[in-house]
Amino acid sequence: MLGFFALGVNVYIVSPILPQMSRELQRTVAEVGLLVSAYSLPYALLGPFFGPMSDRLGRKLVFVGGLALFTLANLACAAAPSFEWLAIGRGMAGIGAAIFTPAVYAYVGDRFAYAERARAMSVILAAVPAATILGLPLGGLAADWFGWRGAFAFIGVVALVALLALYFIPRDTPQAGQAGSYLASLRTLLANPVLLSALAVTFTWFMASSGIFTFLGEFFAQSFGMSTKQIALVLGAYGLMGVVGTRLGGRFSDSLGKKRSVMLGITAFGLAALSLQAVGQSMPLALVVLSVWAIGIWFGLPSQQAILSELMPSARGTVMGVNNSMLYLGSAVGPAVAGQVYIGGSFGALSLYTGAVAAIALGLAALVLRDESHEVVPIS
């Protein structure tokens, strides 16, 4: 869980320190926002190639190696001499995350029956919004005290502690039937239309959520005159509601059904994103809307991960790698597109755009998600 905590801080850290980085690096807000894409894009492009590694080599070897690269990359970001080197460091961190994350999801999928899997996924996923409760406030404080470099150094130290803890987990071995070729695993995935459609839900959902989240720090700075420290504390409240949403989603996925849980989560997020433009100068109302947003996103995610982990059990690492690629491809495209919407219009325009993309994700979920397995016989 501590590894996911570090990844969670890394995903969200640009938002609270974005105004400070823009000033100190002498770059526009939109340019600094692209650092989110610099982290997400390598993950999106390389995830399909790293996912099969844990099917072939075993889960522990792969997720330890991925977290080691992630740790070194964040320490390099803290020492980056320029914006360009910082972007390269963010890209290397994305590669480490692309190796680490699907191996962990596959590890959980191997050890929990489908009926219990959403609850198990929720325990791990809760570490990501939990990162915004402690990680973002502490990262924001580090940025206040030491500049933006302190925030990345903080992530590197947390990841190093997680890496040392993972060393003591017993090494697993690949299961029978998992050691096929990389290309065979990917061909099998491409032969499963239900799986491909479910991946489109992940992409659009996180294109919407990551795009607008990147500019939340700017929204609170402009609307309420908040400092970096205050923004980090507000986003910490977002994380608390995310933990609540994750645990509720895991708990109620069996009674509601995993598909309904995903649809309910997307709906809550979309309505909250549309409402954010109307909060005016009311801080309490803004916090309520942000809470609904957080609960919605994290309520549906454990069920989405559980559904996908069962669609092709014989190549679970491959599936989770490609799914996380779609998540991070959405997270890479989202801020880039949202930045253009924000520059060309206002936060109100960004809110409307986000609601529209969330509606597309909801429609796809209604049409294509299933709770049962759709295994395709592997292509030899």
Rank of each mutant, 00 (worst) to 15 (best):
L164C: 04
L2E: 03
N74V: 04
Y114V: 12
L235E: 00
E375S: 14
A191D: 11
G33Q: 01
Y342M: 10
F168A: 12
T267S: 14
F269H: 08
Y12S: 00
G91A: 12
I95Q: 04
Y114L: 09
G330V: 01
S261I: 11
I95P: 04
L367D: 03
T228S: 09
K258C: 13
T354L: 00
G280H: 05
R187G: 01
L290T: 03
T318D: 10
I297A: 07
Q305V: 14
A198Q: 04
V319G: 00
Y114R: 12
S37E: 02
S373Y: 06
L248I: 13
A232C: 11
V158L: 04
M21F: 12
A30R: 11
L308P: 01
G58L: 03
A120R: 13
F168G: 07
F299Q: 03
F112K: 04
S227L: 08
L45T: 05
L189F: 05
L256N: 10
I124G: 06
V289C: 11
G236A: 01
Y353V: 00
M320E: 03
I124A: 12
A93K: 08
G51T: 11
V288I: 15
F219V: 01
A200I: 04
E372A: 09
M1G: 05
P170I: 08
P284L: 03
P48G: 08
T188Y: 08
R117N: 09
T267P: 04
A76T: 11
L160F: 14
A306E: 04
R90S: 02
V292A: 14
F224G: 00
G89P: 08
G245F: 09
H374F: 10
L57C: 09
Q281K: 10
W85K: 05
S209M: 12
S255K: 14
A184E: 15
A87I: 06
V322N: 06
V243W: 05
G3N: 05
S314K: 05
D172Y: 06
M121Q: 10
S303I: 07
V14Y: 15
I343N: 12
L369W: 02
A98S: 12
S185P: 03
A151T: 10
G270I: 02
Q178H: 13
A338T: 00
L41W: 13
S185Y: 03
L195F: 06
V377G: 03
S331K: 04
V337N: 07
T246F: 06
L69N: 04
P335Q: 05
G334S: 03
T214K: 06
Q230D: 12
S325R: 01
L72N: 09
T246V: 04
S275I: 01
R111I: 11
R56W: 10
F203W: 07
